[in-house]
Amino acid sequence: MTPPAGRERGFRLVALGDSITVGVGDTVGPDAVHGPGWAAHLATVLGAETFINLATEGARSRDVVGTQLTAALALRPHLATVLVGGNDVLRSDFDARHTLADLHRTVGELCRAGTDVVLVLLPVIGLFELCPRLVRRVMRRRVASINAAVEEVASSAPGWVVVVDAARGIAPAGSRAWHIDRVHPSPLGHRTLALSAASALSTGPGSENGVVHATSSITYTTPFSSAEARGRLPVAPEPPSVVERVVWLLRAGLPWCVRRGRDFLPGLLRAVVHDVRSQAPRRTRYAAASRR
């Protein structure tokens, strides 16, 4: 049985974004036709004839609009996925307004070229959920500002756009949804997010999975059940053992934290201080009101 999207002659899907779309955290075998990553698995579920992954590790929104967008437009895809912003929030020079402008241009040009677009809302970054409350608050606020930008871009897009909530999309995988680093999805998380995106595409306007704007020239309604869709995906490996987790943290996790921390920590400290100062007047006013 061929999904309707796959029946479109030469159906092409192109993925733009960062390491999540590259497939970091995913593991696949030879049964993965399009390689690792949630977008590759979405291409498999939709029966895409061609899938090209333009995402790169460490990419920010400016890399997507500056490099990946040009390559994507040249490929004339029927559908493009865009998941970006995670690296932007991890930088000292973070400014959600820049991400908003980059997304407006990226989605606008794709839509005007006749490409349907899947935009993805960021989940909170699990690694920082282990940090003190002040740090968690700053990081959640940054992620929320990126997601607000995604929603704004989708609402004004000149074409067919579906917004998928990554946190909700991965949730069915439960505690096994995340890679050891608590930043990227696990193999099961990547596959679950792909199925959520396929569901959002097929459900159409008014679905709780996504918000659809304008009208696509392609029918994404899948004639098979969710069980059959899962059966199309490459087999996911078993989660790593405790020993494998410790080895990964020593070999890859700690070095990553050191490298990223040189740029990220100064900006994070400034953001935390700014957050504390901005909260102080509110606490002072509340205390004064309580004494009256």
Rank of each mutant, 00 (worst) to 15 (best):
V211C: 15
V258E: 03
A154K: 01
G174I: 12
A171K: 11
P234Y: 01
V183K: 08
L265N: 01
V138R: 10
R251P: 01
P187E: 05
M139H: 12
G189I: 01
A157L: 06
A154E: 03
R260T: 13
V150Y: 01
P172K: 05
S217P: 02
T215F: 00
A166Y: 06
V150Q: 03
S202D: 01
E151Y: 02
V247N: 04
P240V: 08
R259W: 09
R137P: 05
A144S: 14
R140S: 11
A236C: 00
G261E: 13
S207H: 15
W160R: 11
A214P: 00
D263E: 11
R251T: 04
V163H: 11
P266N: 08
S216L: 03
S186N: 11
V161H: 11
A194W: 03
P187I: 08
A227D: 09
T192M: 00
L254A: 12
E208T: 08
R140L: 03
F224Y: 07
A177C: 01
V143Y: 06
S145G: 09
S186K: 04
R232P: 02
P223H: 09
S225W: 00
V143Q: 04
A166P: 09
A252K: 09
V135M: 08
D263R: 10
V183H: 09
V212C: 07
T222K: 04
R137F: 08
A198M: 02
G189R: 04
A194S: 14
A252P: 04
P239C: 08
A197D: 00
